[in-house]
């Protein structure tokens, strides 16, 4: 069946077809289009640290969307990521203020994130609440706790020189900041989990058909719970970084992040119906969002238009993903036809 390419044209055709059948084709083309617009229409795009800042500003959403992708793949949705992220940021800042070392503060924040995810998972799988309701309740709960703890006054005075590095305000090595490093490592780990571990396959199976998964012996409830715990962990990591980047933790730090995280995951090809999604897609999705917001900022459009832009990009992305799905189908048909004609 698999014939080796015999000529240069065939090699090119195979490469081209590989690109056409790639599930991230939609988001890649969207990203390219925006980059081209920026490059030609806005010379200021390359000025100063713009691109550097752009990447830095996308990291929080990127980390959240990596966890969100896993939840979406397993057939759920996590509306609590923004609130949990803010709560974890508050925990890290408070523990630091009490004089604990950075490491201890981070462990505390991450434990809170995992606990929130576990609670989400238990509410969904054991109590039987719909994903939407359970995580909406967690959103309210987490942001409520942060409000009460801060009494509406932002937490300040926890920054140390190391925390400037963690927040990405000071670079780590050369131009690479700590948040970029964390995002890359996290993306690689979660991507590896999804494509190369049993748990990853179970995420896809459960999201594709939970009842059939149970019939085939997959511990469906535990798998779903783990997806939420992973999302909670990502929220905690994002919170730790955002607390450093932001210099203070206001009670409404997380507001709106859940929408951006879901948008980035969907732009990256995840399906709300479950069973589909890619970490690389989520990473590119977060970059696409940041790039679009950057473009309208540079173009002098009022920042209040950002939300509209996010909405429009979401629609464009779904269309782009649909088109790439069509291209994939057509390519597979062509290839199958060619293969069968070779066989004959």
């Amino acid at each position: 069946m698999t014939s080796k390419p015999r000529s240069a044209t065939e090699t090119i055709r195979n490469l081209w077809e590989r690109l056409l059948v790639d599930p991230t084709l939609g988001v890649i083309s969207l990203l390219l289009i925006f980059a081209l617009i920026a490059a030609f229409a806005l010379p200021v795009f390359y000025a100063g640290n713009n691109i550097y800042n752009l990447v830095g500003s996308s990291i929080t959403v990127m980390i959240l969307s990596i966890g969100m992708t896993v939840v979406l793949i397993s057939g759920g949705i996590d509306l609590s990521v923004g609130a949990v992220m803010a709560l974890c940021a508050g925990v890290a800042a408070t523990v630091l203020k009490m004089g604990a070392p950075l490491f201890v503060a981070f462990v505390c924040a991450i434990l809170v994130g995992i606990a929130a995810g576990l609670l989400n998972g238990l509410l969904v799988t054991r109590v039987g609440l719909p994903d939407f309701i359970a995580t909406l309740a967690m959103l309210g709960f987490a942001s409520g706790v942060l409000y009460i703890a801060t009494q509406g006054v932002p937490i300040i005075g926890y920054m140390t020189s190391e925390y400037y590095i963690v927040g990405g305000l000071d670079p780590l090595v050369g131009p690479v900041t700590f948040p970029i490093l964390v995002a890359v490592v996290l993306a690689l780990i979660v991507g590896w989990v999804l494509s190369r571990t049993k748990l990853g396959t179970h995420f896809f199976a459960v999201g594709s058909n939970a009842v059939a998964s149970r019939q085939s012996g997959i511990p469906v409830r535990w798998v779903k719970t783990q997806a939420y715990m992973l999302s909670g962990t990502c929220a905690a990591v994002a919170g730790i970084i955002l607390a450093g980047r932001n210099n203070n933790v206001p009670a409404d730090l997380g507001t709106g992040y859940e929408i951006q995280a879901i948008s980035a995951a969907i732009i990256g090809g995840a399906s709300l119906m479950g069973g589909r999604g890619r970490v690389l897609g989520a990473v590119l999705g977060a970059l696409t969002l940041a790039l679009a917001i950057n473009i309208i900022n540079l173009a002098g459009v009022p920042s209040s238009f950002q939300k509209i832009v996010i909405g429009v990009i979401l629609i464009l992305a779904v269309i782009a993903n649909y088109l790439s799905e069509l291209a994939r189908g057509a390519t597979q048909r062509r290839r199958a036809k060619r293969l069968s004609s070779i066989d004959a």
């Binding site: 049993k198 396959t201 896809f204 199976a205 594709s208 009842v211 059939a212 085939s216 069973g275």
Partner: peptide, 21 residues
């Protein structure tokens, strides 16, 4: 359709899913 196949997964994955080890 309802209880058996995992429609989004490949045939190969559908075969191995109950014992991925």
């Amino acid at each position: 359709k309802q209880l058996g196949i995992l429609a989004d997964l490949s045939t190969a994955q559908n075969i191995s899913i109950s014992r991925l080890s």
